[in-house]
Amino acid sequence: MSAPVTAAPLPQNVFMDRWVLGPKTQRVWGLNHAIWFTLMGIGGGVFLVGRAFDVTTELGRVLGLPLVDVVSFVLIAIGGVVLIADLGRPLQAWRAFRNVKASWISWGAWADLVFLTFGGLLMLPDLEIGDSTPFSGLGWESEADGAGSVMLVLASIAAVVVMLYAGAVLARPRSIPYWHSVAVPFQFLASSLAMATATVLVLVVLDGDDVTSGQAVTLAVLSAALAVSMLLHLTTDKEAPGKKESIDRLVRGSSRTTFLFVSLLAGTALPALLALVAAAAGGARNALVVVALPLLVVGGFLLRLDTLKAGIYPPVTMPSVPARRTRG
């Protein structure tokens, strides 16, 4: 029996490989951006959710500062460092504040700065160094007084933008059809709030308290909204050039396992179910919420990473489809 014949690999033609008409996958943004998007999403959300649940001052303190705020600051700061390190010229990062008229990245940079400034000032009077509180004499005693409440409003608005802007950066240009949808910023926002809610609820559990039924329902609603949005985005305009290839990659291609099974099912739908069960089952509520947190974080990270990887440009023209005629 003769040995199977195998074709020798063809020599690569650089021109043909590079300059052939067809869908192109974006390769400029990837892992670092997914990490940045995730950390900032959780960080901004924790700041807001802690206050929405009115638990910010109850869940322990680090150097006199509320643990919830410390977690929020650390995550956003790390996200910012990852973002800056990924730039082609990190030392020129300050220039990102320039194009506030149009660029969502500029908006995000300002939101990060406003959040870290006013959120930091807000908690500064509570800072303990040794036995002293050197900033306790500042003009604001709590979030309830005039200056404190203004800072809280500014920091809260900035926190919303911090959660939102990564999705808006992707959604604004029309270059990549899968990204150019309100679904992307909505998913990033819902995912951020769901991860942040689970984080705060785990801090509640670690503090020795019980998660309430209402808190579990909130987590279930956020996770379910995210799952529904992901499904809707996969099923609308699914034949549009570019988006078709993106959906193929997410549902049938190389991202099938991470997106469909890990992010959508295990990382979003399952936590929604767990939170729903937790709301009804008082005894196991805390345990179910603790299980939901890592699922949501892994799912949220993969949602962002796979969304980036599924960024596919359609061909610049399709010979079989007449190009639109324009006036000269």
Binding site: K24, Q26, V28, W29, L87, G88, A96
Partner: peptide, 22 residues
């Protein structure tokens, strides 16, 4: 001189007309 290398322009361009000098 003003570019910080965010590559946002590269992602936004539908024609692949921008190039990063790495």
């Amino acid at each position: 001189d003003r570019c910080i290398g965010s590559r946002a322009c590269m992602a936004a361009c539908p024609y692949g007309a921008l190039h990063l000098f790495e």
